[in-house]
Design a protein around this nucleic acid. Structure first.
Lengths: 211, 211
DNA sequence: CAGTAGTCTTACTCACGAGTAGGTACCAGG
DNA sequence: CCTGGTACCTACTCGTGAGTAAGACTACTG
């Protein structure tokens, strides 16, 4: 079944990357429990003992996957968002960065959201951490821009709702990959910024003209 | 460990209910793979062969759980929503019914959303089915009320976004149970009907005075 | 009181998967 | 050419959990 000729001895760092990639792939397809170390090692083109020697137990491997993918994603969003802009523009660029990342890293997103959130224990912690950062980002955006007196808890829960909406819209998007990322992002932007009440009246939000 | 004296012979229908309740409990806590038929049978206060005799294999049991809980939930929403009302009122009553159900049936919701959505295969079908019904309900609400020309696909994807927002707000709510259902529902209502754009201006939506 | 239908159990088989023991192949530096 | 270290493997152990065989106990029915 091995298509390429037997791969030769490779330095540890390279193997570890291969293994991580394989692990993200398998975990995203099967979930933590259904994924087997045998399959991961096979996909990685390596034997099981190597896997254990380099990445430790199954749980350690999974946690490492989550940490790596979470970091990649937060960095993608951070570089995509433009601070010192109007709140709606910031939100817009953040949404674009988010959906852009998910679109190009479906497996990463699956591991992060679907798999990690359903496993209890140490895994959820990494996730909650990332989510908390995202929520407080949005919450800050809100409180910074709001003119009405709103409690901190109000802002936080609205931010949580928005983040949740983004998460599950991304989830939904997995089943409708034909839509381009920008369209999905724009839809969510319109929904959460304008609301149905405006949308049914025909009032839509659109980004400022390109600078 | 058995607290009650040995339960006597019970008719099949009763046992099946006990087993289903136990299965929903265990599946919601552990997920499909981590849940064992041994534990389910123990929680149900019955032996494993009975479980197999009555409910079939583990997969069949899980699918049956999903179907039962999905039906319960859709019925709860259907009885809660008031047709022939303004769109926003319909949406409001629907949201209240939904969050009311989730609040009083956390285990059901976990099985439905968290567990079922992460298992592939025949399980997701039941789920997709329920979700589709919900989405087309909301989509109909939208197209029925919209004054602007909107494509069917536009309405459907907005509805999907709203349903997704509801789902993950419910998910979020599981970790913040101190909030009452009505408050959570109202927050989502405000978010999706008014939008942040209005909310930061202090414009909020509120239900019509009680009839 | 037989017979039979339905409830219920103990005590298995068997496969699969996590983790390991105990090596072999290859490449440095001396 | 040895010596050590790192990459790498085959071939196991062992626990856990799905599913079953085979029968026991109860209750109704004639």
């Amino acid at each position: 079944m091995r298509t390429e000729g037997r791969a030769k001895r490779l330095p540890r760092a390279v193997r570890e990357r291969q293994i991580m990639d394989a692990a993200v792939d398998v975990f995203s397809r099967l979930g933590f429990h259904a994924a087997s170390m045998d399959e991961i090692s096979e996909v990685a083109g390596i034997s099981k003992p190597m896997l254990y020697a380099y990445l430790g137990s199954k749980e350690e491997l999974f946690a490492t996957c989550i940490r790596r993918e979470a970091t990649r994603m937060m960095e993608a969003i951070a570089t995509g968002v433009e601070p010192d802009q109007e709140p709606d523009v910031q939100l817009w660029s953040g949404l674009r960065a988010f959906f852009g990342f998910v679109g190009e890293n479906r497996a990463s997103w699956m591991v992060l959201h679907r798999q990690a959130s359903t496993q209890g224990g140490p895994f959820a912690v990494e996730l909650t951490d990332m989510r908390t950062r995202a929520v407080s980002l949005v919450a800050a955006l809100l409180t910074q821009s709001t003119k009405a007196p709103a409690t901190k808890l109000e802002a936080e829960s609205l931010a949580a709702a928005l983040v949740g909406a983004g998460e599950s819209l991304a989830e939904w998007w997995l089943d409708h990959p034909e839509e381009p990322a920008g369209v999905v992002a724009a839809r969510l932007m319109n929904l959460v910024w304008m609301g149905f009440g405006d949308l049914v009246e025909g009032n839509v939000w659109h980004p400022p003209s390109r600078r």
